[in-house]
Lab assay of single mutants.
Amino acid sequence: PEDEKKAKEALKRANGDEDKAKEILRKLGVDPDRAEELLRRLR
């Protein structure tokens, strides 16, 4: 869904750096736990 698209985009923008991607997602208003879960799934 929408969050998943955001997560993929964030990872791309962060050049695969998960911590940076998490930060980006947090700024986009995605719940930190949700962000973590999404990134884990994309790994």
Rank of each mutant, 00 (worst) to 15 (best):
D19R: 13
A14H: 03
R34H: 10
K22Y: 12
A21P: 00
N15V: 04
A14K: 01
K5T: 11
K20M: 13
A10W: 02
K22I: 11
L25M: 06
A7F: 05
K20L: 14
A21G: 02
E23M: 08
E2Y: 08
N15M: 10
A7Y: 04
R41S: 12
A7P: 01
D17W: 04
L11E: 01
K8T: 07
A35R: 02
K8I: 15
K20N: 05
K22P: 00
N15Q: 10
K12L: 14
R43V: 10
K5P: 06
K12A: 12
A35Y: 05
R13W: 14
R41D: 10
G16K: 03
D3P: 04
R26K: 12
D17F: 04
E23G: 06
P32E: 12
A10Q: 02
A14E: 02
A14V: 06
D33A: 14
L28G: 06
A21Q: 02
P32Y: 08
P1M: 13
R40G: 08
E36D: 13
E9L: 12
D31R: 08
R41W: 13
V30S: 01
P1G: 14
P32M: 11
E23L: 08
E9I: 11
L38A: 05
L38T: 03
A7V: 12
G29W: 01
L25W: 01
E36N: 07
I24N: 03
N15F: 09
D19H: 12
I24W: 07
L11R: 02
E37K: 06
G29L: 04
D17N: 10
R34T: 12
D33W: 12
K12M: 12
K27D: 13
D31N: 10
K22M: 12
V30K: 01
I24Y: 10
N15W: 08
K6R: 13
K22S: 05
A10G: 01
L11N: 02
P32T: 09
K20D: 06
V30Q: 02
D3N: 05
R43P: 04
D3T: 05
E2L: 10
D31P: 15
D19F: 11
E36W: 05
E4F: 15
